[in-house]
Design a protein around this nucleic acid. Structure first.
Lengths: 349, 349
DNA sequence: ATTAGCACTCAACGATTAAGAGTGCTAACA
DNA sequence: TGTTAGCACTCTTAATCGTTGAGTGCTAAT
């Protein structure tokens, strides 16, 4: 258990170190205004804090650095979520969300950009992924005799498309008939039920109507591929190279490992999705708390945005464990709420 | 003018330096097998080459390094484009192009990936951008009473979509009528003519039919926005972080400047487009030959791929000036030809 | 309980030195 | 005349060695 004084000292150390990126000595804490304590006293407390695992010493005769546990305690107990956001930042963000929005993806992209420029860390935004989405319309536009573009439009206006081709011996009219049939049967079906409904109810019926069972299957498969592509929410990154601004990533090896990971959007998406499921609407993963080995030296802070309580997307920040948790959390909190409003309005018409 | 021997020495120096990234000394050239020349002779020739601007010396008593002019001469005169590609690479690339392709974008993405993994540089692929594309179909799928998804399908199967909303007082039927009308008038129109045709022929006619001229205009504007979004070919990157593998980018500042540039897809696209227009089907820009200050320390090698002689896209490699030009050019040459075949087949049905 | 004082530790920095790679030049040689 | 061996010279790189200074831990006094 930490005394009030220890808490204060721990907070000061964390905040000092986050700014300076250099080990914090007892003197600089002692001198820092309000504490009427001498360096020696601070030293004693620091030794205590170190013994309890909240601080670390890079080497004897260096100052102290917060340990992972130290950051954790700071985030859990010492963070005052007072408005750390600067007014001009708030007004910029307000502007972003008050603009006429006609593409949710633009907003996601912009959010990532703002987040990253304001924080100087790397921002990730996982686009909304609405499972309650239903099929609005299935359209086919023929391109030539044996291929066509298949369009899937969902109730929220998201569009997926894929060019499919079918063998010469199947006439276009046949395929058109199939699409009409699917439309009749499937419009209004939630996207996440699509797969099972196709298999259980539609598949055999289609086969009966079409001469060639295998071909019907193939076309259905392609259709499914279009729909499942929809399932992965789109990922937007902002300020990827901000990683390189942080002294802890001046080591090119480390930088490369994180940056390459960020190149694999599928992996990042998965990690974010998992995060939003495992933890609540706001999650802070510090260093080793991350399961991915790539992120051992990073902190990942994420917030979900929701429609009526249902999380549909994630926004987050990736940076060094030495992170301005207050600002980051504040900003994510603010933006995730704005995003929630926006998508709620958007998806309810 | 360079003597044959000087050419040989220049070539050896370039190739040695490209491998080792360390200044090349006279000894190592002399020892290197086939030349029956002593180090002293090499030294004399090297001094000559330096005087003529083909080589540089980082400092007295270091070996020589090719200058920009040196690389230029190497690329222009010394490169034997013999098959530097390894058989297993060729077979992998063959596999890529022989697969059943149903999305050109997958191929572009894969090409970027292969290029970057084979070369260890950063690869860029500018997706095909076919100006001869004509409008195949304009579709509208209503989402609710006052908004709908607008779909533009081109003759090559590319799809653009945008959610548009219209004011409450305009009934859906009115908009549907507009879309039908536009479809009748515009199907078959080349994309690049769309804008002018709408303004010159359609605009006023639409206004006559619709009660509110301004509203008609607004909807047409949105439609145009969808079509022009099409104009920028999509950009695919591969191995962005490979940049960090190169010793010349261990300097974080330099690395950051190039990597941040790569984040701005619009800028990169523009640069590539310009490159393909200014230079022929294969362009090599070495260091300062690049206009962008970001690329002063890089080489940018690009190749266009074509449909019947018309360039429709670009593939390229970005790396340090100390680049394996032979391999890179060979690979780009091969892949651009394959891409040409593919898109030609694809876009002719 | 707090603090002043002091001895001690250790990274960081700079200067000095030694090693080694590579050059340019000269003189000898074919 | 072109080539080469030899040698003195240059300059980077790495290693060594004090020196400095920040910061600690401990003790004794308040």
């Amino acid at each position: 258990m930490l005394s009030e004084r220890q808490k204060m000292i721990l907070r000061m150390i964390v905040e000092d170190y986050v700014q300076s990126a250099e080990p914090v000595g007892s003197r600089s804490i002692s001198k820092q205004g309000d504490t009427g304590l001498s360096a020696a006293t601070i030293r004693n407390e620091m030794a205590d804090l170190e013994e309890q695992g909240y601080l670390e010493q890079p080497h004897t005769s260096a100052g102290r650095v917060p340990s992972q546990q130290g950051y954790r305690y700071y985030v859990d107990h010492l963070l005052q979520l007072g408005e750390r956001l600067r007014p001009e930042e708030i007004s910029k963000m307000k502007a972003l969300f008050s603009e006429r929005v006609d593409e949710i993806e633009k907003v996601a992209q912009q959010t990532a950009l703002y987040l990253s420029t304001f924080t100087q860390y790397t921002a990730v935004v996982l686009g909304p992924q609405v499972y309650e989405n239903t099929l609005r319309s299935l359209q086919m536009v023929p391109i030539n005799e044996h291929s066509a573009v298949l369009l899937v439009v969902t109730s929220t206006g998201q569009v997926q498309n894929k060019t499919v081709s079918f063998p010469e011996d199947i006439p276009l009219s046949q395929v058109e008939k199939l699409v009409r049939f699917l439309n009749e049967k499937l419009v209004g079906t939630p996207v996440y039920q699509m797969r099972s409904r196709i298999f259980e109810e539609i598949s055999h019926e289609v086969a009966r109507q079409m001469r060639d069972f295998e071909e019907a299957q193939r076309i259905l498969d392609q259709l499914l591929a279009v729909i499942s592509a929809e399932k992965d929410g789109k990922l937007f990154l902002g300020g990827t190279t901000n990683m390189l601004l942080q002294p802890e990533f001046h080591n090119v090896e480390k930088a490369k490992s994180v940056l390459s990971w960020l190149e694999h959007h599928d992996l990042v998406s998965r990690a974010l999705m998992q995060e939003s499921k495992a933890r609540g609407p706001l999650s802070v993963r510090i260093g080793g708390e991350n399961e991915l080995s790539t992120l051992q030296d990073c902190s990942l802070v994420t917030a979900t945005y929701q429609i009526g309580g249902d999380p549909v997307g994630v926004i987050g920040i990736i940076g060094p464990t030495r992170m301005e948790y207050g600002r980051v959390i504040g900003m994510l909190d603010y933006l995730s709420k704005e995003m929630s409003h926006l998508v709620t309005k958007w998806y309810s018409g």
